[in-house]
Simulated scan of single mutants.
Amino acid sequence: MAYCPAMDANGTWLVVGLGNPGPRYAGNRHNVGAMVVDELVTRHGAGSKLRSHKARAAVGEVRVGTLPGGAPGPRAVLAVPSCYMNESGGPVKALAKFYSVEPERIVVVHDELDIPAGAIRLKIGGGEGGHNGLRSISSALGTKDYLRVRVGIGRPPGRMDPADFVLRDFSVTERKELPFLLSDAADATEQLLSDGLLATQQRWHSPA
């Protein structure tokens, strides 16, 4: 499915941050998608926190940015599934149905091993790269043609199992840079909603 960057500004977006529930996983690299949504919640004042939804997710509704002439920007539903990563598809499908959001207006924010730590990349469709959250969402939606904001966490050191790496907290050094990474990923997500995929890729995929 082709993606049109000049979509109806009045349409609703669904922005989903992936992670695992509970304090045990809160600081894990695998939870960086949920952390980005928390950053967006803070920026846009979706209450003090997301609220529980029957779709097994925590949800808040915001307007992102401002349109030419000063009108409020696009409406976005911010969500974090309240189930484990490999069950993310059910909540995403239910929320898409509840808010009448088509797959091309679903944005999934997630950790990415195959991108250098600190880098942000965006795409629509394609493979899941072994990511259980993405695999679950693709299966539930019946398509891979949804948008992804891919937050680079880098590869594990030495012979560490990638599954162990993503389920560990960010290191002390990484935590110093984490606020900047979350801010960048939130910026990229906001630009994606307002400017479209191509313009956002041109900014975030360009060499520094």
Rank of each mutant, 00 (worst) to 15 (best):
residue 160 M to N: 06
residue 140 A to G: 11
residue 176 K to D: 12
residue 106 I to G: 08
residue 122 L to E: 07
residue 27 G to C: 10
residue 117 A to N: 07
residue 101 V to Q: 02
residue 85 M to F: 09
residue 186 A to M: 07
residue 82 S to E: 14
residue 148 R to K: 15
residue 47 G to T: 05
residue 167 L to F: 02
residue 56 R to M: 12
residue 74 P to Y: 15
residue 130 G to F: 15
residue 138 S to K: 15
residue 141 L to D: 10
residue 75 R to D: 02
residue 132 N to W: 05
residue 110 H to P: 09
residue 200 T to S: 13
residue 89 G to K: 02
residue 202 Q to W: 01
residue 105 R to M: 05
residue 60 G to Y: 04
residue 20 N to T: 04
residue 142 G to E: 12
residue 93 K to G: 07
residue 101 V to L: 06
residue 26 A to P: 00
residue 44 H to G: 07
residue 7 M to D: 08
residue 163 A to D: 08
residue 24 R to P: 01
residue 190 E to P: 08
residue 64 V to N: 09
residue 199 A to M: 07
residue 74 P to R: 14
residue 182 L to I: 02
residue 34 A to T: 01
residue 153 I to T: 02
residue 156 P to A: 13
residue 117 A to Q: 12
residue 156 P to V: 06
residue 173 T to H: 13
residue 122 L to W: 04
residue 73 G to N: 12
residue 2 A to N: 11
residue 53 H to T: 03
residue 15 V to M: 04
residue 133 G to Q: 03
residue 160 M to E: 13
residue 166 V to Q: 12
residue 65 G to H: 13
residue 13 W to P: 00
residue 176 K to F: 08
residue 101 V to R: 02
residue 165 F to R: 09
residue 181 L to K: 08
residue 181 L to E: 08
residue 120 I to G: 04
residue 78 L to M: 10
residue 151 V to T: 00
residue 48 S to M: 06
residue 197 L to T: 08
residue 168 R to H: 12
residue 13 W to H: 11
residue 163 A to C: 10
residue 204 W to C: 03
residue 199 A to E: 12
residue 33 G to E: 03
residue 76 A to T: 07
residue 117 A to K: 13
residue 107 V to N: 05
residue 187 D to L: 10
residue 134 L to C: 08
residue 87 E to H: 10
residue 168 R to M: 11
residue 137 I to V: 15
residue 81 P to K: 08
residue 145 D to T: 01
